[in-house]
Design a binder for these strands. Structure first.
Lengths: 339, 339
DNA sequence: AGTATATGGGTAAAGGATTACTCATGAGAA
DNA sequence: TTCTCATGAGTAATCCTTTACCCATATACT
């Protein structure tokens, strides 16, 4: 067990120098001789000394820590984003503090206050929540994946998202390319906030139009939650009432998984009778008995841009990222066996 | 955007009282009149003041923050644990700081140093890593799920884990109960650290022995990683070379998923020809075309005990938890359609 | 009346690190 | 020799809160 708490003062005393010198050694700020450094380092080692980050942060009015507001870390996509950002920032000496809101705006507000109270130096928000003037924090901010509707690009911030319209478009286009002329869609109808699925829907319609396929509302099923049950129910609806499409675009992989299972259970051959394209590239998609063709987000680029933005902002560089405030990234079709 | 930084001093000045009084109001420490309180609160509101937690922590030599060392937040089981603990502790005024190590011991060490440097008040470790004396931190600690082999229950700590041996036992027993006499096992052979799967194996053997079924090494397949591919490969090995068992215990759900898919692809009827029981109760297990029977961890109890331990430790209560250092919790069979 | 106690609130000392200044010494230049 | 400047290192202020201690005033009790 470590000894009682050791401060920089103790180290200074034991190594016969002033606290200023010890501080310089810790921060490698020059202004000390090699012997002094060796002595100080040895004492620090010996007493297992770790500088108090609270004191340092208090003095510097900042802490190398970035808060990330995330709706649900359990969601695979968000989880992967968080882990990648964390590890990248950690390598550069920054800590990432995860604030899981569970989609609760009050919790988000409390977390934002905490981020301010802890003098963190950066903020990432995956949240549609619109904030009041006084809730904003004046630190570099990245709006990631979910962007508030009436976002104002004032202050130090950028937004990074993927192109959902294009995603819906290329998914549908792939189905058409495979010969489908009767393309349905299972659409997550996120009432409250997220426009993402609506954009995918718009892309779907654009692809249809471009191929001169008449749009048919009968082929559109809206569901309230994007999960397997609803995917299965939608498939059943097609089977029992609306008639089988030859292609089906599901705006989320979970819907696709549920639909696929349901089709198979009813002896519908996928992809022979119905081709399916999902969205999000969750790991489950490729683990299905028939691996699901899907759209994948530019995850790595999103992470990369986010981290680069912070590093350049903290270095007070004027990078090109600072200028281009709104960044929309292309998505990618992952070709597998359902389409 | 909030105004320039406001300190308690500013608030004191603007409301015509001393900083001590403002501090008392903030901390509701009595010693002020109702009018004073109202005035101070109003000024704090008006200036959108948030106390600096670094200064507070520095002064109090502690911060209401608990660090959690976790191998991979992306893993569904760990993710759920973390989210539940976070939300429970947050309700009691504590922050949870997630330290994702990606199974890298150097990263864990760096995180531990950070936890010490930030004066956090509690620690949760999901890690087999054995620490040297000087790496230990003298704060309440919960070893969760993964327990270092030669753990010493000195200082303020408890360990909370589930009973893997019992899990292996009831999984196998269920198969036997369903009439299987020829029960195989796909075993994650975690060389380095985790004894969990070995314990499940021991439980498996105990169930066999109890039912007077002769143990047969031919029915044991060890794999290096617990993923779908390996599950599939193991199933294939049974199909092509070793002969089909009538029951199969997979020590992880991912193995079970892979095996199930492979069996189905080869026209093996599950559960008619082969019954399967998995382990961990991941969400994928119930989403399969044939939902997989599995063993579920006492997740909620683990979370509950962990949080209760901290709350009582911080309140300096002598709870019964402090005494019973090693806590082993029973697991549960989730009956579905593969067994 | 005189003393004890409760109430409301102020003063100033931590708490640990950083950093602007200051200073002594020695080397090199004029 | 004298002046300049680089080097190594110390002093003390500062960051913002909490809190031990102190001090009036008012009330209550012999």
């Amino acid at each position: 067990m470590p000894d009682k708490k050791i401060s920089i003062r103790d180290i200074a005393e034991k190594s016969g120098v002033s606290v200023a010198t010890v501080s310089r050694v810790i921060n490698q700020n020059g202004r000390y001789s090699a012997e002094t450094e060796a002595r100080v380092r040895q004492i620090m080692e010996e007493y297992n000394y770790v500088p108090n980050l609270l004191a340092r942060g208090l003095r510097q009015q900042q802490v190398p820590e970035i808060g990330i507001i995330v709706p649900d870390i359990t969601n695979e996509f968000f989880g992967r984003l968080v882990v990648q950002i964390e590890s990248e920032l950690f390598e550069h000496g920054y800590t990432l503090t995860i604030c899981n809101t569970n989609e609760d705006r009050m919790i988000e507000r409390r977390y934002l206050e905490m981020i301010r109270a802890k003098q963190m130096c950066g903020l990432i928000r995956i949240s549609h929540e619109h904030l009041r003037e006084e809730e904003l924090i004046d630190i570099p901010t990245v709006y990631l994946d979910r962007i508030p509707e009436n976002i104002k690009y004032t202050g130090q911030c950028i937004s990074v998202e993927s192109d959902h319209e294009q995603g819906g478009y290329i998914a549908t286009k792939e189905l058409i390319k495979q010969g489908c002329r009767n393309v349905g869609i299972v659409l997550h109808d996120a009432e409250i906030s997220t426009k993402a699925h609506e954009m995918r829907y718009i892309g779907y319609k654009r692809a249809l139009e471009e191929a001169n396929i008449e749009f048919d509302v009968k082929k559109v099923i809206r569901v309230k939650r994007a999960d397997c049950q609803n995917g299965g129910r939608a498939a059943l609806e097609f089977i029992e009432r609306r008639g089988l499409p030859d292609g089906l675009f599901c705006t989320s992989d979970l819907l696709a998984v549920g639909a696929l299972d349901e089709f198979l259970k009813h002896g519908v051959n996928v992809p022979r009778q119905v081709r399916i394209v999902g969205y999000d590239n969750i790991s489950l998609a490729k683990m299905m008995m028939i691996p699901i063709t899907t759209i994948s987000h530019p995850e790595h680029t999103m992470v990369d841009i986010t981290c680069r933005y912070f590093l350049s902002a903290f270095a007070k560089e004027e990078s090109e990222l600072q200028k281009k405030k709104r960044i929309v990234l292309p998505v990618e079709l992952i070709k597998r066996e359902t389409a």
